[in-house]
Design a protein around this nucleic acid. Sequence first.
DNA 1: CGTCTTTGACCGGCGC
DNA 2: GCGCCGGTCAAAGACG
Length: 334
Amino acid sequence: MEDWSLQAIVRGTSADYTKIVDVEKDGQDWFFDLSGTDHEKKFDQEFLDSNFPGIFDVSIGSGDELEELYKPFYGVSPSLAAQTVLDFQEQLPGNVDEVHKKADHESDHSLETRVYAPKYKRRKNQQKRVVIQVSADGLACDMWAWRKYGQKPIKGSPYPRFSFSLSLIKSYYRCSSSKGCLARKQVEQSYTDPGMYILTYTAEHSHSQPTRRNSLAGTVRQKFPSPKSPPISKLTVKQEKSTEEELSPIKTLLQVSSSTEVVEIIKHENKSEELAVGSGEMSHDDHENDFIMSDNFKLNEDFFSGLEDFDEFISGLPMCSHTSAQQFPVRSCS
DNA sequence: CGTCTTTGACCGGCGC
DNA sequence: GCGCCGGTCAAAGACG
């Protein structure tokens, strides 16, 4: 058997989450994306199977485990969830490697853009981890109870060593259902799509899924600027509102109807601001990390009234009836 | 009062 | 050995 080990594999036939395979081989990490069209999925899976013989057999062996890990996301409607392809190549200059050469050799360009090179050496004693990308709905509908214990700016997440100027926020969560539970979760905004979030799960829950959270105390924070607050300047948004926790509420509240719609709305807002301020003052990377609330988007009383109605509506949805959403960046499932 | 978030400090792994 | 960086700790304050 070759020197490779399966770190994480996410498999699915629906489009309810982005399927990223993280494989360690010869001491290096390899990323594959199994989303996309059926043809692309088939091609990638065949490629994986040929380059990492037996990988899918192994995944079957650990399937139950992963099944548990991904239960929270099974309830996400395909129409609401992620289907974004991470393009790590942008962050990996000069990553011409064995895989790419093989891809070139086979003259398949689509493959070349979908097979990701090794990033950096795995840390010693690093636990098994599962990396997935979800929409804000995916965050909101995580059935486990998590407690945030840290937050750090991550340069060029998810692969800081290949980053340049941008800095994203990564939040660290631990399971709050059981003190002895070692389960960890990291949430960071997608590098390529601000509307998406990259979740990294480490360790496993040592208990069954909680039916309800222990307490709601301390979980409700003011997510929106008060009516008395001064208008949010663009710089303010960049410096203080760059975390997913600050920028998600509007996204999520709107996202219930259609994630696609929301992405378009957000991008439209960005575009509005960009047009108003003018291009050239911010880099491309800056735009990707910002949520800009344009002047055209007024948070008046009608808007908040609408949110209350919306909360009532959401609370009746079975999918999110007892989630830990309140402590997450998004609150659509309160 | 219990649980939560926030945030600066701290620790350890890694590369040079 | 040193500096950088990711991950965790723990105190303070907020919330129901």
